[in-house]
């Protein structure tokens, strides 16, 4: 699978000739300060936005709009309040052709159990805590078994403890159900903890500056020394890029 696209967005260059390839089953984290275009990049891959130039290729075919092969997990859970937890997970399944009602229920049960919320399947959205909402959102995104999972700062609104627990669970789930994941974050350590590869972006204009491979065994300890070394290295690089804007060709 390959994706490559440069993009213009209005007078401000949100993404300037960005090219990125992600392999099947790879976990890639996009890191950068606000304004570096990482969320724009994710939205274009999701098909919610269109690039001005260039294109996204998924399995060799161009992406023309949102599709159930690329599920998105948003910063806020975006769960539907008129449905209970189960109903939310079933929503995407209902749009997948060829599933009868029973199969949908079974799938929804399975994925709710996977995120540890089977007991709360009939809970209303407002009854769930922030972390639980994001768990349901994760189950909702995984249930239709997309090829790619796109995560847009999914942990940004969670408290530190909940977040760290989530890192562990996400690693466990990812190892069981290998999916291609593209995660956007501004947290360098989070990126190092989760990703096979960390892609560094810098703003004005949004560009990919550097890539880091993180070859630590999983599950990774968020407070581990090895992880700290990697994230320290990435952080230093990020600081360097912020101080020295790209030399050529920005208008």
């Amino acid at each position: 699978m390959s994706k490559s696209f440069p993009s213009d967005k209005g007078p401000v260059l949100a993404l300037d000739r960005v090219s990125l390839e992600v392999a099947e089953g790879e976990f890639v984290c996009l890191v950068g300060p606000s304004g570096c275009g990482k969320t724009t990049l994710l939205n274009i891959v999701a098909g919610l936005d269109r690039p001005d130039a260039g294109e996204v290729l998924a399995d060799g075919g161009p992406v023309r709009g949102p599709g159930a092969d690329r599920m998105v997990m948003f910063q806020e859970s975006a769960l539907f309040p008129w449905l209970d937890a189960m109903g939310n997970v079933e929503f995407g399944l209902g749009l997948k052709p060829g599933l009868d009602r029973r199969t949908r229920r079974d799938y929804a049960h399975y994925y709710l159990r996977m995120v540890g919320l089977e007991r709360f399947r009939h809970a209303a959205v407002h009854e769930l805590s922030g972390g639980m909402k994001q768990r349901v959102a994760l189950a909702r995104a995984l249930a239709p078994e997309p090829r790619v999972l796109l995560m847009d700062e999914p942990f940004a609104s969670l408290d530190a403890l909940t977040r760290e627990q989530f890192y562990g669970d996400l690693q466990r789930i990812w190892r069981q159900h290998r999916r291609t994941i593209l995660l956007v974050t501004h947290n360098v350590r989070e990126a190092a903890c989760l990703g096979d590869r960390v892609v560094l972006l810098s703003p004005h204009p949004g560009r990919i500056r550097e890539e880091f491979r993180v070859d630590l065994p999983r599950p990774r300890d968020f407070h581990g020394v090895e992880l700290a070394r990697h994230s320290g290295e990435i952080m230093a690089a990020l600081r360097g890029h912020l101080e020295s804007p790209p030399a050529e060709g920005a208008e």
Partner: peptide, 27 residues
């Protein structure tokens, strides 16, 4: 708007979005 965006990424379109997302969300 996030409801509509979320629904679109799950493959919901047109009438389906209207009846299954916009209508209940506006209830």
């Amino acid at each position: 708007p996030i409801f509509g965006r979320a629904a679109r990424t799950m493959g919901s379109r047109g009438l389906h979005t209207m009846l299954r997302v916009t209508l209940p969300a506006s209830l």
